[in-house]
């Protein structure tokens, strides 16, 4: 409880310790605290920026998707139209081809029929002449009646 010079010694120690803390302990830790605060602030800002760009990107991708869908729908519609067109064209072409074939066949048939008719006519004329010859073997001279026979043949 007695006062003595310890008081002054303690006073000096007090200032030395405080000076030491001010010089070597306080500044580095405060600096670290401030730096960390800055880092956290930057991190938060970066996160905010990231969130915004994510929003932007998702909006952009939705837009692109929508455009793509529209384009696909358009292409499909066009393709359907084109397919119908092709089918229609093919039908028309097939019909005209078929008509052509049919017409050709008809003409051929007619030709054939005419040819057959001609040969039949000749054959009938021959048969008629042959029959007539047999009937008229004796009195009919082929040479004498050749004109007549030709005339008959013409009538057939």
């Amino acid at each position: 409880m007695n006062l003595n010079a310890t008081l002054f010694a303690q006073l000096v120690v007090f200032f030395i310790l405080a000076w030491f803390t001010m010089k070597f302990v306080w500044p580095p830790i405060m600096k670290a605290l401030d730096e960390r605060a800055t880092k956290i602030a930057e991190g938060l800002a970066a996160a905010e920026r990231g969130r915004q760009s994510l929003d932007l990107a998702s909006k952009h991708s939705a837009e692109t998707l929508r455009e793509g869908k529209e384009k696909v729908a358009e292409v499909i519609a066009q393709a359907e139209k084109r397919a119908l067109q092709i089918i229609e064209d093919a039908k028309l072409q097939a019909k005209s081809e078929a008509d052509k074939v049919v017409a050709g066949a008809k003409a051929e048939i007619e030709q054939e029929a005419a040819r057959v008719k001609e040969s039949l006519r000749e054959r009938v004329a021959e048969l008629a002449v042959a029959g007539a010859e047999k009937i008229l073997r004796r009195e009919v001279d082929v040479k004498a009646h050749a004109d007549m026979l030709a005339a008959i043949k013409q009538d057939l």
């Binding site: 007695n2 003595n4 010079a5 310890t6 010694a9 303690q10 120690v13 310790l17 030491f20 803390t21």
Partner: peptide, 27 residues
């Protein structure tokens, strides 16, 4: 009661010891 020719060695030693210990840990 008051005698400024005297110094309490134990107080000085232990207070400096504690001060140095604290500063050493913080440093």
């Amino acid at each position: 009661i008051v005698d400024f020719s005297v110094i309490n060695l134990d107080t000085i030693v232990f207070s400096i010891l504690m001060g140095v210990l604290g500063l050493f840990i913080m440093l």
